[in-house]
């Protein structure tokens, strides 16, 4: 009797582990349009009204917790913001002049404006679910294909890039955040050289990104410096468009160690958006149907 129970227990355990391994192997090797992915999307589709309802019901709980957290950090944030306002006010005047000059010159040389953010249509969406694991930085939003959202559409929030749409259902979309280990985007530092590289996350540190593959600066003074803004580079090569329009703020350079910059060609970047506390985002829906869109890497 006892042996029978032990055998039964072991057989069931082996079956559960076996099914998990089969699912893992099958899912990992499949394309996004495969049966397993389709079934998964279908289940999320069915559950999305429940998720949306639960998110609304539990909002007061989140708000109370958020209030405590905000109050604790309010004083230090106020001091930081005052400093930022002072330095930004100086920049605004300089940038206004530069903007006028830029638009005049762009018109004169006939630059293509279609990769700019103005060519996109923004769809507002609320965050309803969030992935709690350290390895997957994704959120679910309440807008989907019926609202014109497509896979790979860029997503902005808090006035900065927060990620891209990785899965779309009829009434929901999964947004992969810029801190997810699978994310990468071409980005430019707004320094004198306009240094361009590939921005990737530092897995395990949600407050840090790494801008890699920067060219070694001839003069360190003109290279990336802490505090300088980092924006999406955007590019267009024949029929290929970048996924992300040029000029969306991503964050600012937080650390530009000379040795690391010269040897590895990378600097650390702090994201501008408050990713752990996103409540609403804007999905930039594709402007030019028919164009192919490229992605890095």
């Amino acid at each position: 009797m006892h042996n029978k129970q032990v055998r039964r227990r072991r057989a069931l355990l082996a079956a559960l582990v076996g099914v998990s391994l089969i699912l893992l192997t099958a899912y990992f090797g499949e394309s996004p349009n495969s049966p397993l992915h389709t079934v998964q999307r279908g289940i999320v589709e069915v559950l999305s009204p429940v998720q949306e309802g639960a998110s609304k019901v539990l909002k007061p709980v989140r708000d109370i917790a958020g209030w405590f957290s905000s109050t604790l950090h309010a004083k230090s944030q106020r001091d930081q913001l005052r400093k930022q306002v002072a330095s930004l006010l100086k920049q605004v005047d300089q940038l206004r002049v530069a903007q006028i000059e830029n638009s005049q010159l762009s018109r004169e040389v006939g630059l293509d404006q279609s990769i700019g953010i103005s060519a996109y249509r923004a769809v507002g969406a609320h965050v309803i679910w969030r992935d709690p694991t350290l390895w997957y930085a994704t959120v679910e939003v309440d807008k989907g294909a019926v609202d014109g959202v497509h896979r790979d559409d860029p997503v902005v929030g808090d006035g900065a890039l927060v990620g891209k749409v990785s899965t779309v259902g009829a009434n929901f979309a999964i947004v992969t955040l810029i801190t997810d280990h699978s994310f990468a985007v071409a980005a430019r530092v707004l320094d004198q050289n306009g240094d361009t590289g590939v921005l990737v996350p530092a897995v395990g540190n949600p407050k840090q990104l790494l801008l890699q593959y920067l060219q070694k600066p001839a003069d360190l003074q003109t290279g990336p410096q802490p505090g300088q803004q980092v924006v999406t580079a955007g590019f267009k090569s024949g029929p290929l468009d970048s996924l992300y329009p040029a000029g969306i703020p991503i964050g600012s350079v937080s650390n530009a160690n000379e040795n690391v910059l010269l040897n590895s060609g990378q600097v650390q970047v702090a994201p501008a958006a408050d990713l752990p506390h996103l409540d609403s985002v804007q999905i930039l829906t594709s402007p030019q149907a028919g164009n192919q869109r490229a992605q890095l890497p």
């Binding site: 069931l12 997957y136 990785s166």
Partner: peptide, 26 residues
Amino acid sequence: IMGFGTGLLVDTVLVQTLGVTSLLYI
């Protein structure tokens, strides 16, 4: 069984690689 079911549910609703969380929770 609870570990397998909960893990599968987590992986499904978060659109993650199926089977990873199940394996750990088992």
